[in-house]
């Protein structure tokens, strides 16, 4: 016979639904998701009013992604992903994953959740799942909105690319989904880092900012070719590999390596987070 109060079951505490609601009512969540809708609209407006003097800034073979952005809804969505993959999505994912535990700690509500008691591992698992769900929602919202407004404005055309032949629209959607899938996987790394920091600190800003800073540091180190093969182990090394999914046939070697890297980093960070949180004295 259980010692617990009637109706209490550890596995029923902090239902996913409840955590989704806890986060959904936050201004932070609403703003982040709202911006994912807003960004494609801003980009669209910029294209509409930006004039035609496109000075080629020499970004190599992929600079033409910009030129192609207005050639159809798929290309517009691709462009939106291209401009946000490097930084915006990292910040959004770090926000959702880095803030989730640290903010509860800073409000003081974490100790009451633990006194319910929500088992610590369950608390972390639910928080993580919900944070990842929100991150994925943000990613899909961005791509979905861009695809929608791009298609409404520029029409439904094959996915153009300068590195390969045009990709028929139907297949283009699959490519877009594959790119989103890969981005989601690589962002697991930053999600892991932010979540670990979230567990280690009570300051939500520290967790989010720390994760983003370390991510930027990794990106900078990755630019230094003198580091040689050490760069292959940087968590951001494969973050651009999704561009390979645009060529025909798809270049998946780096995608696979990037997925391995991201999964390993995420597992490491999350393991540390669970290890730490299930053992620490909660003093906040």
């Amino acid at each position: 016979m259980s010692s617990a109060a009637t109706g209490y079951r550890p596995s029923a505490t902090l239902p996913i639904r409840a955590e989704i609601r806890r986060q959904a009512s936050r201004r932070r969540t609403q703003l982040a998701l709202g911006f994912m809708v807003l960004l494609p609209l801003i980009v669209l407006l910029a294209f509409e009013f930006g004039g035609g003097n496109d000075d080629d800034n020499g970004g190599g073979a992929f600079s033409s992604l910009v030129d192609l952005a207005t050639s159809g809804g798929l290309n517009f969505a691709l462009f939106a992903i291209f401009v946000s993959a490097g930084f915006l999505l990292v910040v959004v994912v770090a926000l959702f994953c880095g803030d989730t535990v640290a903010s509860e700690a800073s409000w003081g509500s974490l100790r009451y959740l633990l006194a319910i008691p929500v088992p610590r591992a369950r608390l972390l698992a639910v928080k993580l799942v919900v944070a990842l769900a929100y991150s994925l929602t943000a990613l899909l919202t961005l791509a979905g909105t861009a695809l929608l407004v791009g298609t409404l404005r520029y029409g439904w055309h094959p996915l153009g690319s300068t590195v390969a032949a045009e990709i028929p629209a139907g297949q283009g959607v699959l490519r877009l989904l594959a790119i989103l899938g890969y981005l989601a996987v690589t962002l697991l790394g930053v999600a892991g880092l932010a979540f670990l920091l979230s567990v280690l600190t009570d300051a939500a800003l520290g967790a989010v900012g720390g994760a983003v800073l370390l991510w930027i540091l990794s990106s900078i180190l990755d630019q230094i070719t003198a580091l040689g093969s050490v760069r292959n182990f940087l968590p951001t090394h494969y973050s651009d590999a999704w561009l390979g999914l645009l060529s025909t046939p798809m270049q998946t070697d780096d995608v696979v390596k990037g997925a391995i890297s991201a999964v390993c980093y995420a597992t490491l960070f999350w393991s540390l987070a669970f290890y730490r949180f299930t053992r620490k004295d909660v003093t906040s």
């Binding site: 259980s2 010692s3 617990a4 109060a5 209490y8 550890p10 409000w107 003081g108 509500s109 974490l110 100790r111 009451y112 633990l114 006194a115 319910i116 008691p117 929500v118 088992p119 610590r120 299930t278």
Partner: peptide, 17 residues
């Protein structure tokens, strides 16, 4: 930590959260 018996304890410690 996390003992189910805690469900029979109500608490206010170190101020509201």
């Amino acid at each position: 930590p996390g003992a189910p018996i805690l469900s029979r304890v109500g608490a206010l410690v170190e101020g509201p959260g």
